[in-house]
Write a protein that binds this DNA or RNA. Structure first.
Length: 415
DNA sequence: TTTAGGG
DNA sequence: CCCTAAA
């Protein structure tokens, strides 16, 4: 019971799932470890209410009721440092993924240190030791999202103490959240005038100025547009380079993506208090003066997010994005209802195109994007198919789907 | 404001 | 992801 049914997956599949879940690859070859890891990644979102997904072979079964949150998996993880086992060689959890170089030394530390933070300390150590490796911004950003859930908008208040009067610029200031460790991160969308940003953590996103052309054009007459742009860029350059070392987690770490990753996974259930790193928005758009709207940083969808989305759709119906956003995605500050919609659209497309030919061609050209587990795709297709038939009944929306429906993966002999 | 679609 | 038309 404890173990999720990932057992039937091959190492390769586990790797894929792992990547899909955490957005990064892993070289760990230990099946057990992978399973635990994935299990956590998937269930750490225990509140997915009604059902937790279980992947079994190619079937996706929803396990109803019981708060089956595999605490076990997590505990196990903590105890993993048991080198006694013969498979120690593969025991390098979130350590450094591809860097098996420092492995040994780190492993030792892992043992001596407190289990709970086994993954963390070693990192610091090894980092000083040899690691110089470049940050790899992408990972940091994408993994930084912690799937912590539910934390009402309670954290919004205190922000005022910071003397940020500008957040009012847009009556609808996106809920500002306070990140765990005394670190405050906020994002003001001041599209209107002020557009000043508080570089508390100077996490401005950098990217190409892109086409603010339109905006610029309008102000051009006064040359202000240009000025604005320049300013914007300037700000950008200055505050951006330090990629978003989000929450003071990366602190001393030169960058090691692993750390972020860690935090997400290791976070023990009990420590889940809302204050722990709020997956706040910020990486999002930042505006400087008029029209410095950068694209939101691309957030790779993790498997768990996808699953939440799928479940959300199954419960509230496709199209009720705002609902799904509020309920199933309450914790993900980024991911707007529109994002959900878009993602669903993509999932749908993927599910329909499922396993077409793949023939000899270099199949996975851009395999970089998380491969979505077949089961999930099947579910997506099912839901779409089904929902198109029975337009979501507002009355029984909650009962629709999730309740008693089975996952009849319709023959789909594929794979 | 939220949806649906096109870009 | 962004943007926009509709609702």
């Amino acid at each position: 019971m404890g173990e999720i049914c990932l057992d039937n997956l091959s190492i390769k599949e586990l790797h894929e799932t792992f990547k899909a879940t955490f957005g990064r690859e892993t070289t760990v070859k230990d099946k057990q470890w992978l399973k635990r890891r994935i299990a956590m990644g998937l269930t750490n979102s225990c509140d997915v209410s009604t059902s937790s997904f279980i992947i079994k072979d190619n079937k996706l079964v929803s396990k109803g009721g019981e708060g089956s949150c595999n605490k076990e998996a997590i505990e196990d993880q903590a105890v993993k440092p048991v080198d006694g086992s013969g498979k120690e060689s593969s025991l390098n959890p979130g350590s450094k993924m591809e860097d098996q170089q420092i492995v040994s030394s780190e492993r030792l530390r892992t043992c001596s240190k407190d289990y709970s933070c086994a993954d963390e300390d070693p990192l610091k150590e090894q980092r000083n030791a040899k690691r110089i490796r470049k940050p790899t911004r992408r990972y940091i950003e994408e993994l930084s999202e912690v799937e912590s859930k539910e934390h009402g908008g309670k954290s919004i208040a205190s922000v005022k103490n910071l003397g940020l009067g500008l957040m009012s610029s847009r009556s609808n200031t996106r809920p500002v959240r306070i990140a765990s460790s005394n670190r405050i991160t906020l994002r003001l969308d001041s599209l209107g005038g002020s557009g000043v940003q508080i570089p508390y953590v100077s996490r401005v996103r950098r990217s190409r100025p892109r086409k603010n052309v339109k905006a610029l054009m309008e102000f051009h007459p006064n040359g202000i547009g240009m000025a604005a742009k320049l300013v914007k860029e300037a700000v950008d350059v200055h505050s951006s380079e330090p990629n978003r070392e989000s929450e003071g987690i990366v602190l001393k770490a030169g960058s090691a993506p692993e750390q972020i990753q860690q935090q997400g996974q290791n976070m023990e259930p009990k420590n889940k208090d809302p204050s722990v790193y709020t997956p706040d928005d910020n990486p999002a758009t930042v505006r400087a003066v008029k029209g410095g709207v950068r694209r939101k940083h691309h957030r790779a969808w993790t498997l768990s997010e996808v699953m939440k989305l799928v479940e959300g759709v199954s419960k509230y119906g496709a199209g009720r994005w705002s609902e799904i956003k509020r309920l199933a995605f309450a914790s993900y500050s980024y991911r707007t209802s529109v994002d959900l919609k878009d993602k669903w659209r993509n999932l749908l497309k993927a599910s329909l195109a499922q396993t077409p030919p793949d023939s000899r061609m270099g199949a996975r050209k851009h395999a970089s994007s998380v491969p979505i587990p077949m089961p999930v795709l099947l579910r997506v297709r099912e839901l779409a198919e089904m929902q198109s038939q029975f337009p979501p009944n507002l009355s029984s929306s909650k009962l629709t789907g999730s309740a008693g429906r089975n996952v009849n993966e319709t023959r789909s002999g594929y794979l």
